[in-house]
Write a protein that binds this DNA or RNA. Structure first.
Lengths: 371, 371
DNA sequence: GCCCCGCCTGATACCGGTATCAGAGTCATG
DNA sequence: CATGACTCTGATACCGGTATCAGGCGGGGC
C-alpha cells in the first residue's frame, strides 16, 4: 500500500521522480540541508508523505561517516544492576538522537573482544564498556577502537592499564564504610562474600590481593575497603572468613554455611553482590539462625525487596541509572567535540541503614552504643 | 599503528593495494565468496592482518540489503522482566550471528511508533515487539514494517488486531490458577492489584472489562483469569477489591491499605506485578498485619528475593529467558526463509507454592483441608 | 541594452562494500 | 600451429544516501 513494490520502502530517487524534481533537491529537502524554494520543498514533502518515505540510515552513515549509534558492552543485560545502568545509557542517548547496541560478555574476555569487533564492524560512534579487562595485555580490543578514532568511556569498572574517562562509584570507600559500621556495632568476625573466580581459595592476604589485581576491578576495590576497615580497627585478617569464587547462590550458601559452622563463627556478613545476600539469607535459614539477632547483614545494591524484608536489610545503594546516564553524557560530549578529560567520574553511593545490623550476640545491652 | 592514517580503519581497496591484487579479488577473499587462488588468497589475508582490516558492516548491508540486526521494542529495559527476556533474545540472536538494538517505550504508544521508525530507518531485518497496542487504530507502525517486508514477532503481549506470531504465556490461565488456589484455601475476599491506567476506578464489572480491552493485553488476560476463578466459585464480584491505575509502589500501598481498612476486609491479595507485591507487603506492615496469618499473598514474577522472604512468597514464575529466546528463534526462522506460522506460541508458567498462602483468619484449624 | 552577479537547481563523484561480466592466460586437442 | 574450453582475475555498476560544483535564469546597475 505505502510503497509501489510491496518491499523495502521508496528511495530518495523515487520521491524525487514523484515530485518531479532532481534527486539532489529531494535530498536537500528531506535531509534538511542546503536551500530549496518553498514550492519545491512542499512538492517533495508531499511526495515523501504519499510514498511513506523513510531515509535509509545505513546509506546516510556510509556517506557521513557517523552512525548515531552507541555500542555498549556489559557483563549481562539480564542482571538488574546492568539493566538499570543500560536504562540510564539508553534514556540519555535517545534524548540526544542516538541509539544503542548492547552486547553481553558474561565476564568472559574472549566475548568482550568479539563484542568490540562487532561494534567496530557496525561502525558505532563510541563505546561504553564495563570491562573485565584490567592489565596491560588484556586491552588490545579497546586500543583497537581508540586507534580507529572511536572514543571509549568506561563505566562501573575502571581499567587500570588504560587512561580513559571512567564513570564509577568509590567501591573501596563504600565497602570500608559498611564494614566500619559493623565494627562499630561490635563485630570482629566479619564474613566477606566476595567474587573473583579463583581456582584455589587464597590462603594469605597477599595471595588475596594478587588475585584481586588479576580480576574484576570492583571486586578488588571492595576487598581493599574491607581490609582498610579491618586494619583501622586492628582486627586481624582471617582468610577463612573470605569467600572467593563465582558468586552463585549455591556456592554462597555453602560458603556462608561453613563460616557459620566455624568454632569462632562469623557474627556479621558483608556481601558484595545481590546473589551473595540471597545466598546468605538461605544459609542463615538452613543453620536455624536469624538476623540481626545471631548475625548482622550488609550488602551491595539496594532494591525494593531489601526494604520489605522483615527485618529490612541494610544496603549500599548504587546510583545505577545515573551511572549509565553520566557515561552516555561523557561519551556524547566527546562525540560533540569535547576533549576527553580522561578522568574518574566518581558518583556517590549511599549506605542505607536499616534493621539488619545489630550488636553481635552476647553483647551487653546498652541503649545506643557510643560510636 | 594498525592503520596508516590513525583513523577509521583500512578499506578493502587499501588491503587490495597492499596485497597487490585487484579490489574484487580482495573482496572475494575477505567476503568468503567466489574463487581465489591459494596464493593470492594468502597474500590478501596477510595484507588484511597487517593492516588490521575489519569489514564495514554498513557498506555490506547497503549492498546485500540485510543488516544482521534485530530490533527489539519493550516497555522498559530496566525492568527485570524485560531485562531477562532481552537476555534470551540477545543470547539466541548472537548465537546465530545477529545483533540487537533495543528501544524502550515506557508503555507510551507515541514512543513505540518512534521506536519502530528508528528501527525501520536503521534497516533492521526483523522486529520483536512487546507492544502496548491492541486495537485496530493503533497498529499502523507495525503494519508499516510488515509492508516493507520486515517480519514482526510479538512477545509477552499479543495484539488482537494483528494476525502475527506471538510468544506469550497463558496469562488468563495462570491468574485463574492462582486465584483458585486462594479460593481453595477458603478465601472469598480477594484483592486484585491490577494495572490499567484509567482515570476513574471502574465501578462495574462491565466498565472494568471495557478498560481492560483498551489497555495492556496481559492486564486484560489476568483480569479475566481473576473473574473466571470468582465466577466458577460463585463468589460475587466486588469492584472495591480491584485496584486500577499505574502500579507504582506508593499507589499500591494506598490502595491495598484501603482494602485492608474495609469493614469486610480482604483476606488475600493477588498481585499482577512485582511492584504490586512489594507495595502490598508495605501496606501490610503499615496496617500492623502479617502474612499469611492475616492476609494471604500471591504474585506474578518469581525471583530470588521471593524465595528468601520470611515466610517465602507464593509466586507465578514466567519463563522470561525462554520467552525472549523463543521469540528470537521464531523471528530468525522466518528470516531464514520459513513461512510465518502466525500463531500463538504459548509457553508454560509455573505457580510456585510457598508459605504465603494460608486459610483466612478465623478458619477452624483442620489439618489439610480437602481440596 | 548589455553585462554581471546571485539565487536556485540538478548532475555527479563519493562512502565501502557486493556481484556481474568481460577478458587475459593456460592447456589440451585437432 | 591454430583453436576452443576452461580457469582465474580485475574492471565496473550498484546499493541510497551526502556534498560539491557547474550552469540556468532573473534582476539590478551602468
Amino acid at each position: 500500500m505505502a510503497t509501489e513494490r510491496g518491499q523495502a520502502g521508496p528511495t530518495i530517487s523515487e520521491v524525487a521522480a514523484e515530485a518531479g524534481v532532481g534527486r539532489a533537491t529531494a535530498a536537500r529537502t528531506l535531509g534538511g540541508y542546503g536551500y530549496v524554494s518553498p514550492e519545491l520543498r512542499a512538492r517533495v514533502l508531499a511526495a515523501a508523505e504519499k510514498l511513506g518515505y523513510r531515509a535509509n540510515a545505513l546509506a546516510r552513515s556510509m556517506s557521513t561517516g557517523v552512525s548515531h549509534t552507541l555500542g555498549v558492552i556489559v557483563a549481562d543485560i539480564g542482571n538488574p544492576f546492568f539493566a538499570g545502568l543500560l536504562r540510564g545509557v539508553s534514556d540519555t542517548s535517545r534524548a540526544r538522537g542516538f541509539d544503542v547496541i548492547v552486547l553481553s560478555t558474561y565476564e568472559n574476555l574472549q566475548e568482550e573482544v568479539a563484542a568490540a569487533n562487532v561494534l567496530i564492524d557496525k561502525r558505532v560512534d563510541g563505546f561504553i564498556v564495563a570491562s573485565a579487562a584490567l592489565q596491560r595485555g588484556q586491552v588490545a580490543h579497546l586500543k583497537a577502537a581508540l586507534d580507529r578514532g572511536i572514543p571509549v568511556v568506561l563505566v562501573d569498572r575502571a581499567v587500570t592499564a588504560l587512561d580513559l574517562d571512567a564513570v564509577v562509584i568509590d567501591n573501596r570507600d563504600a565497602a570500608r564504610e559498611a564494614v566500619e559500621m559493623l565494627i562499630a556495632a561490635g563485630h570482629r568476625r566479619i564474613g566477606f562474600v566476595w567474587g573473583p573466580p579463583v581456582a584455589e581459595p587464597p590462603a594469605t592476604r597477599r595471595e588475596l590481593l594478587a588475585a584481586a589485581s588479576r580480576n574484576l576491578w570492583t571486586d578488588g576495590e571492595r576487598l581493599r575497603g574491607y581490609l582498610d576497615a579491618l586494619d583501622d580497627a586492628h582486627i586481624p585478617f582471617d582468610p577463612e572468613l573470605v569467600m572467593a569464587g563465582p558468586k552463585t547462590e549455591e556456592r554462597v550458601v555453602r560458603e556462608v554455611g561453613r563460616m557459620l559452622a566455624l568454632p569462632d563463627r562469623v557474627t556479621a556478613v558483608f556481601c558484595t553482590e545481590t546473589d551473595g545476600m540471597t545466598g546468605s539469607l538461605r544459609a542463615l535459614r538452613a543453620a536455624g539462625l536469624s538476623y540481626p539477632h545471631d548475625v548482622s547483614l550488609v550488602g551491595f545494591d539496594d532494591n525494593a525487596w531489601a526494604a520489605v524484608m522483615e527485618p529490612p536489610l541494610t544496603m549500599i545503594a548504587q546510583p545505577v541509572h545515573q551511572l549509565g546516564a553520566k557515561a552516555a553524557e561523557v561519551l556524547l560530549d566527546i562525540l560533540g567535540g569535547a576533549e576527553p578529560a580522561r578522568e574518574m567520574h566518581t558518583l556517590r553511593s549511599r549506605l542505607i541503614r536499616r534493621a539488619s545490623v545489630a550488636p553481635p550476640p552476647g553483647t551487653p545491652r546498652v541503649s545506643g552504643s557510643s560510636t
